[in-house]
Nucleic acid binder design. Structure first.
Lengths: 130, 130, 130, 130
DNA sequence: GTGGTCTAGACCACT
DNA sequence: GTGGTCTAGACCACC
């Protein structure tokens, strides 16, 4: 899977990494148990600092999306992804609220918004069976 | 309309302000043409610095959600809210993508997600007629 | 001649007034010797403060574009407009420089720019004979 | 490139900075991709506050003339300057109109004005090939 | 080291 | 009293 970094984005690089890896997992491009590049090689490929990659991986591990094995490397969580806990759902709502509020301000209907959400969902999800 | 700030949150204060004001507009609690508190009074009420409020107001003005009238005060945009431009829709997608990707990872179905989105949308929007 | 004010503009109201009156003189809509509205009536018509109109008129008088006669009122300078002094030409250059610099940045050619300038000039000036 | 500030001028310092940097870009003294001084070092060199420099840089970034890279620094836009959009051309006209009106009032002919514009344009632009 | 955020306090132009 | 500008000084995240 190809990761790419936008250096002029406002989002920190480590966040861009975590988001892209999660998108890889969501889309099935990254399968459970599959190996991720080592910190060193990924940092080298992207031309960024080791610490930055390490931070991204550590966060993903804390959330339960990957496993980091000393000496063996980094793999996508093979033992089932983390659950949708109530805490997660609450956080999700807080993330969605301002986005939806802005959409309403700009006159976007619920139907339009549902289409956008479905397109993104299916755009990611339908790869999963491959 | 009551605005509240979470000083502990990692989201910048000025972002919390812009988001809450946009939610106020979306929900109709803030009507077009309605006056917003002056920079100084809002800063005083919230116990924050006037520059922080100023930054929030300036961003909202740049996006077209409010008007800032020098020497007179600040009002909610009376001449129609900004449109849902292609640039806006693209930005919206980029905001939604990581949220939806994470939802997929955690096994949330499209139907569940649509319910969440609808609840938030209607929770904000249905106040509009009041 | 119709004057109009943009309350949400960043340019101070008195500047908007002086500019519009100068445009009126440039275009011949305001003829030398012609009466301008009194401070009081203009302020009333535009819904702005007396001091604001007064400031605009005072500036125009200082520059030599109008005459203010106590009790008689305000008239467009009948005794010849102010000259293009070296100081004026220098100030003009300083005003034009940033505008032209930005035009160059955006790839506007000298020919294009000349067309813009000519259009504005003739758009104002050709009314003069009427 | 040398930047200089006139503290006595009534034009805000941050405006002087943005104008000078745009002139530098227009004249080719600042090349695309070239690094600009860091906020702190420029503020130090000019003897002004870092927030003032920050404001100037932020405005130039919003217009698309520079890129601000968090943690790394500021560079002149390497991916092509912003286009001359219709909105830009309209803004330009509004900026030019009062200047040209005043020129007409003072009896400056179109030909004289064109010479002034050409001199400034070429004075900036002809450095570009060097 | 960088830019981003926030505070505190000041002066100004304008209404 | 309003927003606009500027200063001085601080802490933070990131690299």
């Amino acid at each position: 899977m190809m990761l790419h970094i936008d250096l002029q984005s406002e989002t920190p690089i480590y966040t861009q990494l975590t988001e892209q890896i999660m998108e890889g997992i969501a889309s099935g491009q990254l399968q459970p148990g599959e190996a991720l590049p080592s910190i060193r090689s990924l940092a080298g490929d992207l031309g960024i600092n080791l610490h930055t990659v390490n931070k991204a991986y550590t966060l993903l591990k804390q959330e339960g999306y990957i496993q980091i094995h000393r000496y063996k490397g980094v793999i996508v969580q093979p033992d089932g992804m983390p659950e949708a806990t109530p805490a997660f759902r609450e956080r999700q709502k807080q993330q969605l609220k301002p986005i939806i509020a802005e959409a309403i301000c700009r006159g976007i209907t619920l139907e339009e918004l549902q289409v956008v959400v479905r397109d993104i969902y299916e755009g990611l999800h339908t790869l999963k069976g491959e």
